[in-house]
């Protein structure tokens, strides 16, 4: 037989055989994908932030489509709009999304505290923390090298005057910054709350006070003056129980160092230049 013809026949028949096998496989092993998954996925913003508790937007869409009784309002970046669309697709009742914002539990900027050394190493909070707990005098406070700035999907964080500020108008409440911060200074809370302890120092009052003029000294004035018993002092640091807090602001009025802040977090940039006006 002609060798060219033979080559053509053999290669073509192998190719056709492969194609036939693939066609048969595609027919018999095809997986029926739930159409709702795609439709729900379209509604989600696609930030893959994980705030819903699932592995990215795809994971949440799959869970919503396949399992009963999952809340449709878990997507915080998507907000009410996404929740409403998903509820329509699934035919369930729509619930409001609890808007969340990230807040920084430190106000030790350049006016309140200073450095114990000049740090010239790797410019990341993670690295600086490993080097004697960072350059700041207070080893609990914001290091200010901006690891949180890097992970924020919405550019809501900036470093001003040595500490991280979160623009609550831009914050989508995904909590990536809270996971990244090596000092665990950032928490995500519902934006209806407005009382915030802006300190994370757990040292004794006198020691903390020497390091930062904004530090919580654990004096318990807030505990004594809170009408609803929402504040406790643990490890020399005031903590607010948001289940009980009524946003009355008594704690902030009686705080001698002014480390308790009361303001509306829903869409107001807390730290204006005239920040004394914002603090009670």
């Amino acid at each position: 037989m002609n060798p060219i013809l033979l080559a053509v026949i053999v290669v073509c028949s192998i190719g056709i055989l492969c194609a036939v096998v693939l066609v048969i496989a595609a027919r018999f092993f095809s997986v029926e994908e739930n159409e709702k998954i795609g439709a729900i996925r379209e509604c989600l913003p696609g930030a893959n932030c994980g705030a819903c508790g699932y592995a990215g937007c795809d994971g949440y869409a799959k869970a919503l489509a396949e399992e009963e009784g999952i809340k449709t309002n878990l997507c915080i970046p998507g907000g009410d709009g996404a929740a409403r669309q998903i509820s329509e697709i699934l035919g369930v009742e729509f619930e409001d999304v609890v808007e969340q914002v990230a807040v920084v539990h430190c106000y030790g900027d350049c006016n309140h505290t200073s450095h114990k050394m000049d740090y010239d190493g790797i410019q990341s909070c993670q690295a600086a923390k490993m080097f004697y707990g960072g350059a700041g005098k207070c080893s609990f406070g914001c290091i200010g090298l901006g690891d949180c700035v890097g992970v924020c999907p919405n550019n809501a964080i900036c470093i001003e005057n040595g500490i991280a500020h979160i623009d609550t108008r831009k914050c989508i409440g995904c909590g990536l910054c809270a996971k990244t911060c090596p000092q665990k200074l950032i928490t995500v809370m519902a934006d209806v709350e407005s009382v915030l302890v802006t300190c994370n120092n757990r040292e004794k009052g006198a020691v903390a006070r020497q390091k930062c003029s904004n530090a919580c000294i654990g004096c318990k004035m807030c505990v004594k003056n809170c009408p609803s018993g929402a504040i406790s002092v643990e490890d020399n640091l005031a903590r607010v129980d948001y289940e009980k807090c009524t946003n009355c602001g008594e704690c902030a009025k009686h705080c001698p160092v002014g480390c308790i802040l009361v303001s509306d977090f829903s869409g107001i940039h807390r730290y204006s230049e005239d920040d004394e006006g914002q603090k009670f």
Binding site: C18, A19, V21, L22, A25, A26, F29, S30
Partner: peptide, 9 residues
């Protein structure tokens, strides 16, 4: 085509 087949299966 083998890799495609494996992916389908």
């Amino acid at each position: 085509s083998l890799v495609q087949l494996v992916e389908i299966i």
